[in-house]
Design a binder for these strands. Structure first.
Lengths: 342, 342
DNA sequence: GTTAGCACTCTCAGCGATTGAGTGCTAATC
DNA sequence: GATTAGCACTCAATCGCTGAGAGTGCTAAC
């Protein structure tokens, strides 16, 4: 259902006001702010219509109107102009990205923290598991007598390491040889395709060092277990303390608990999203715990898997800003991943 | 100044009650709870004395008394019996420690989270920088054309890694040789003692690969910069949401902000502490931001440097439980570091 | 030294009156 | 027919008041 121009203007005006003030918006203030050339009474009539249509609601009879979730939905779908990063923000972002030539995880957390600062909502970045990348190199480095460090490097440059026990009799050279043998057998193998029979052959090759081989396999198993999980970076969770809708302690605690725990956060983000900016408003969210919050999330291409980046905030959210910023940062992550890291 | 037995009993009674309920304690309830063989009127007199001495204070005339910070101090110094972990708690702890044979940082975070769960306060563990450990092994592993991974293993098994650029012409074997050369020169050198002239010699040795050498040195510098910082693990920050003294949003935000940022947290913890359990109450804290909170912190021996573990909570804290638990866990970290990791 | 008794203090919850923002309706106007 | 001015009405929020309740401090008696 489409709205005529005037109704649209009024709806937008109410949304903007309400998002800013968190207070119900009255007919007078709509007229004042947007100095439309109509009277408050006319606006009242239009507002009554909008309420009938479901785009507005009234907390109680003698209060102003607030946008309903359906109202926000209409705004987001039919009227919203995404507001992209302005010059000063871009400057800050570039500074951040340039100063840091470190690990991918550093960049992700910097971008996440930038996102939360710019939008003033909690941000999250989900980095998918690396199951599609390939073994590149396996090394075993002695640390102390009986302890060694197992290193696995994948083709995308992800490093996994784990301490393992080795016989104290074994020499550094021998460990190196074992590492090389593993490299030979596994190099180019995708992590999830690692075949047991290849490994068996390996075990035959080095039969006098079976104990070490077994330790290594065990460690690789554990590492893969770990790497199977996608990682989640959360930033700016405390931003919700600024939102008046969360002055209630119980609500606050429920939300903050989710925003503190990777696992909980992962559960509330929709599995299937498009690469574009996805917005889910209030009760549109499947997860019960966040049915008074909104999500703005986009996918980015992380070595063939879809990563996710977005913000979570109150239904009364600056969708225009959030959507624009999330979109920009999604693109930047895409770029970085395709150019800088290969 | 020492108190007579009866005053002590009354003070303790008031402290216990107040810590539990967060409400001022009246003379009647003191008599009732601890069924002392004296009347409320007598208790009132004693309470008036305790107030004169500064151990109690009165929020307003017709309310009960609450312990002053000085009262808590007296209790902690002269009366407190530390309450150690009970059997069921020990069982949980053992389970946690056994299931996890991974990295040291995992253990630290598990212990931290256990501490916050048992005490219901926010916990922190500070792991000192590793500046006293020695180089053990340097490796350079090619990832893709023009990119390689630099790995440094120290004698305590800490691994540092960083991606570096290398000439795309360079071979895997050559990188390995360079790594070996570094290992030869640096092995056994303490990180903070790494001498520039040793490195210069190295640079001479491999003069046809100066670019790579320089890249490696640059990366080592950055890594050492990073490793110079102690790391901080915070757990259970949201526990303060349960404390009625933080129902005020501004206070809450101030405290949570500190508990979310490693750097801020580090600043509020006293530099100099003894290895034993240190307790600072309210205004005893130098940092202004936490002058309505208390710290319970102990030092543990982390490869010769002092690490710190503790909790932070309201002045109205169960010091007996917090002190006992912190002490136990301090000892456990000490043990783990001396036995398991060497 | 201890206690019972009592007047006094102060907070807190509940209640009614007041205020003010905002609506909805009606009748007049463009 | 759309728009607007005017006005009665509604309802949350605020203020001031009151009474109840908890607790103290003092005094006088034990």
């Amino acid at each position: 259902m489409s709205l005529d121009t005037r109704k649209s203007k009024i709806l937008e005006s109410i949304i903007r006001d309400y998002v800013e003030t968190a207070e119900p918006v009255g007919s007078r203030s709509v007229v004042r702010k947007h100095n439309l050339r109509i009277s408050a009474a006319t606006v009242r009539n239009e507002m009554a219509d909008l309420e009938d249509m479901g785009y507005l609601e009234q907390p109680h009879t003698s209060a102003g109107r607030i946008p309903s979730e359906m109202g926000f939905r209409y705004y987001v779908d039919c009227m919203m102009q995404k507001e992209t990063l302005d010059d000063s923000e871009l400057e800050i972002l570039n500074k951040i990205l340039n100063e840091n030539i470190g690990e991918w995880s550093d960049i992700v957390s910097k971008v996440g923290s930038f996102l939360s600062q710019v939008t003033n909502y909690a941000s999250f970045v989900i980095v998918p598991s690396i199951k599609l990348s390939e073994f590149k190199n396996v090394q075993i480095i002695p640390i102390t007598d009986g302890k060694a460090m197992l290193l696995v490097v994948t083709d995308v440059g992800v490093l996994m390491h784990r301490r393992i026990d080795v016989p104290s009799s074994i020499s550094s050279e021998e460990l190196q040889l074992i590492g090389k043998a593993f490299t030979r057998v596994l190099s180019g193998t995708r992590l999830e395709e690692m075949r047991r029979n290849e490994l068996k052959a390996l075990r035959e090759d080095l039969k006098n060092r079976r104990k070490v081989i077994d330790k290594v396999l065990e460690a690789v198993d554990v590492m893969m277990q770990g790497s199977r999980d996608e990682s989640v970076v959360i930033s700016g969770a405390l931003n919700i303390l600024n939102e008046p809708e969360f002055k209630d302690m119980d609500k606050l605690k429920r939300i903050l608990t989710i925003l503190e725990e990777d696992i909980l956060l992962k559960q509330i983000i929709p599995e299937k999203i498009s690469e574009d900016v996805n917005i889910t408003i209030g009760k549109e969210n499947k997860a019960e715990d966040i049915q008074e919050m909104s999500l703005v999330v986009a996918g980015y291409n992380n070595f063939g898997e879809m990563g996710k980046i977005g913000v979570i905030g109150p239904v009364r959210m600056e969708y225009w800003k959030a959507a624009g910023t999330v979109e920009s940062l999604r693109n930047i992550l895409d770029q970085l991943l395709s150019k800088k890291f290969f």
